[in-house]
Amino acid sequence: MLKNRLALLAIVLWVVTIAVFAWFFVRGNTEAGTDGRNTVVLAASERNLILGEMRALLAASQQVVQGIQQGDMKRVAESARAVGMASAVDVNPALMAKLPVAFKSLGMSVHRDMDDLAQAADKGKSSAELLGMLSNTMSKCVGCHSGWQLKAVQ
């Protein structure tokens, strides 16, 4: 009888642990922002990492536009690929747990879009098609910055 109770207690604790983890995975470490956006609360180093990634995406987008303008599809592909999914694989799982699922999904979709853009440039898609793809991706950037802000805590 004691073994059954201990087994039941272990199962209940396991389920509670999984539920709490799932809650934080979906919600992340967030709070209401002061300007109507959701605030993701991070350590300063984590915030700097994410902002650095965003700057890299912006710089790559500028290189893509410049490559399209100059007709240099190799530059377009290389610039886009540099910030594709391969650049997002080494993110610390503890940091990922702090990010809400909507934020993570949007960020990962931007990295996938950049890989798609690189493939389209490799296949010789037209400048108009490439700019359209980049425009769609940039609308995700605008949406993210409109809905989220990052707060560093010590």
Results as ranks from 00 to 15, higher is better:
residue 3 K to A: 15
residue 4 N to C: 07
residue 4 N to H: 12
residue 5 R to W: 14
residue 8 L to R: 14
residue 10 A to W: 06
residue 10 A to V: 09
residue 11 I to C: 07
residue 11 I to L: 14
residue 11 I to Q: 00
residue 11 I to D: 02
residue 12 V to D: 08
residue 13 L to A: 13
residue 15 V to D: 03
residue 17 T to W: 09
residue 17 T to F: 12
residue 18 I to A: 13
residue 19 A to Y: 02
residue 20 V to C: 06
residue 20 V to A: 11
residue 22 A to Q: 09
residue 22 A to I: 09
residue 22 A to H: 01
residue 25 F to E: 13
residue 30 T to C: 06
residue 31 E to R: 14
residue 32 A to R: 12
residue 33 G to K: 02
residue 33 G to T: 03
residue 35 D to P: 01
residue 35 D to R: 06
residue 38 N to G: 10
residue 39 T to F: 07
residue 40 V to S: 00
residue 42 L to I: 01
residue 42 L to R: 02
residue 43 A to S: 10
residue 43 A to R: 13
residue 45 S to Q: 10
residue 45 S to I: 09
residue 45 S to T: 11
residue 45 S to N: 10
residue 48 N to T: 13
residue 49 L to P: 03
residue 49 L to T: 10
residue 51 L to W: 08
residue 52 G to C: 03
residue 52 G to F: 05
residue 53 E to C: 01
residue 54 M to E: 12
residue 55 R to L: 10
residue 56 A to D: 11
residue 57 L to R: 12
residue 57 L to W: 11
residue 59 A to L: 10
residue 59 A to F: 10
residue 62 Q to A: 11
residue 64 V to T: 02
residue 68 I to L: 09
residue 68 I to E: 03
residue 69 Q to Y: 05
residue 69 Q to A: 15
residue 71 G to Y: 01
residue 72 D to Y: 02
residue 73 M to P: 01
residue 73 M to G: 02
residue 75 R to Y: 00
residue 79 S to Q: 06
residue 80 A to R: 06
residue 81 R to Q: 15
residue 85 M to P: 11
residue 87 S to K: 14
residue 87 S to I: 05
residue 88 A to S: 13
residue 88 A to N: 12
residue 89 V to F: 08
residue 89 V to W: 09
residue 93 P to T: 07
residue 98 K to Y: 05
residue 99 L to S: 02
residue 100 P to G: 01
residue 100 P to A: 04
residue 101 V to R: 11
residue 101 V to S: 10
residue 101 V to L: 15
residue 103 F to C: 05
residue 104 K to P: 03
residue 104 K to E: 06
residue 105 S to Y: 10
residue 108 M to L: 15
residue 109 S to H: 06
residue 110 V to E: 14
residue 111 H to G: 05
residue 113 D to V: 05
residue 113 D to T: 05
residue 114 M to Y: 10
residue 117 L to N: 01
residue 118 A to R: 04
residue 118 A to H: 04
residue 119 Q to C: 03
residue 119 Q to Y: 09
residue 120 A to P: 14
residue 120 A to H: 11
residue 120 A to C: 11
residue 121 A to L: 02
residue 122 D to I: 04
residue 123 K to T: 10
residue 123 K to F: 03
residue 124 G to E: 00
residue 124 G to I: 04
residue 125 K to L: 14
residue 125 K to W: 06
residue 126 S to A: 03
residue 127 S to N: 14
residue 127 S to G: 15
residue 130 L to E: 07
residue 134 L to M: 04
residue 136 N to G: 15
residue 137 T to V: 04
residue 139 S to P: 00
residue 139 S to L: 13
residue 141 C to H: 02
residue 141 C to P: 00
residue 141 C to D: 00
residue 142 V to R: 12
residue 143 G to L: 07
residue 143 G to T: 12
residue 144 C to I: 05
residue 145 H to P: 01
residue 149 Q to F: 03
residue 152 A to F: 06
residue 152 A to P: 06
residue 152 A to E: 08
residue 153 V to I: 11
